[in-house]
Design a protein around this nucleic acid. Sequence first.
DNA 1: TTGACATTCAAACGATCGTTTAATACAAAC
DNA 2: GTTTGTATTAAACGATCGTTTGAATGTCAA
Lengths: 222, 222
Amino acid sequence: MEETTSVKQPVTDNTRERLLDRSEILFAHKGFAAVSVREITGSANCNLSAVNYYFGNKMNLYISVFKERWIPRMKQVRQYADDYLSSRQTIGISDIIRAFAKAFLDGPITDEERIYHFHLMQREIAHPTEALKMVVDEIIHPMHKDIRGLIKPSLPENLSSEKLALSIFTTISMILYFGFAQPVISLVMDQKFDPAFKSRVIDHIVSFAMNGINGLKKEETV
Amino acid sequence: MEETTSVKQPVTDNTRERLLDRSEILFAHKGFAAVSVREITGSANCNLSAVNYYFGNKMNLYISVFKERWIPRMKQVRQYADDYLSSRQTIGISDIIRAFAKAFLDGPITDEERIYHFHLMQREIAHPTEALKMVVDEIIHPMHKDIRGLIKPSLPENLSSEKLALSIFTTISMILYFGFAQPVISLVMDQKFDPAFKSRVIDHIVSFAMNGINGLKKEETV
DNA sequence: TTGACATTCAAACGATCGTTTAATACAAAC
DNA sequence: GTTTGTATTAAACGATCGTTTGAATGTCAA
């Protein structure tokens, strides 16, 4: 049987992919410096030299994790929110909030993924590398602007852009907090993050933020 | 002149205090593993062996930072909120929210302190050591219970305790977010965190959370 | 079979890590 | 002055770090 070029195995950079997968988890969990190249390559079941062979050095692997894992995942999450919204006939503010809350907390990524995804970002905020600016420019800033564009039509025209921006940040803050502070929440509330609880959390966020934004509307129009 | 024992210099563990001060900042900024003992002792202007002399080892210095810096600072913040509230004749929900928002964001600690204080906590959440449980048991859990006790009288009796707990967490999440995500917020809003802006942020948090909790009240009593 | 290329591997490099040691400096007590 | 105990210092320890090297292995085209 003649093999076709199309069926041919992707010459697979399989080791490269495994390195990205495993190192993302380790970097998120322990931080860049706390993870050794030996730990990464051990976890990825490959030779010590593989990091330098595929990525040049450890730092470039770290940057590549953001380029090839973190950013694509955010685009996936974002796509989920967009799909949710475009499936609706009318789009109110609560739909927008729910779209993003669901996308982040109950969307296309697993619970485990979400947690280390957030942890990576927090570590960048505490100790920025070139990854932070890349991520803010490519993902966070555009997303923020898009949300602003979505919400604005539902709000009074004279609402100051600062109040709108602050409202978006506070809403996002609630979503993010439940995404990363689960250990603390579980300890204090004595409550596991099972699907039922997560669903109640999303409902809570939506109604809480809705009331916040609607209140804003009233204040302004008075 | 005879020296009195009471005037006698505190035999000052000055080096010990400097080690705590400097290492807290470094640990918060870079993480435990990313900071070397040499960097700490260099920053504290003392000999390399001082860490082991005063704290036994590096990890115990880290734990001591939480015991002797982080937890006392939280008690200081908490005291600020309590003082604010006890200076009022009547205490409404908005007073409670403002008390804690001010205590955290505009209270007795400096902006720099607040940032590394939060970063230390985030690192603990991402990669818990024995410090996390200590901090949750001694500070966070009690504070949460106290806030609950303060707010409860102003809410309908039939409000589920879960909804109350979630409301507290969401309110806290807003406060914390503005405490640690300043780099991102500044980048996106193109706005420095000067005192005027901080004051508007606090007002925003108070009204946003107030509307959220009041909405909760209405939902429940229907 | 041969040659070219991509990948994996074991071994070693110098640098830096946390920690230990033993000597020294210094002040107060006797 | 001597003793005592605390604090600081320089030097060294073995372990581990990121990275480099050069050989071994596998793959496919010629």
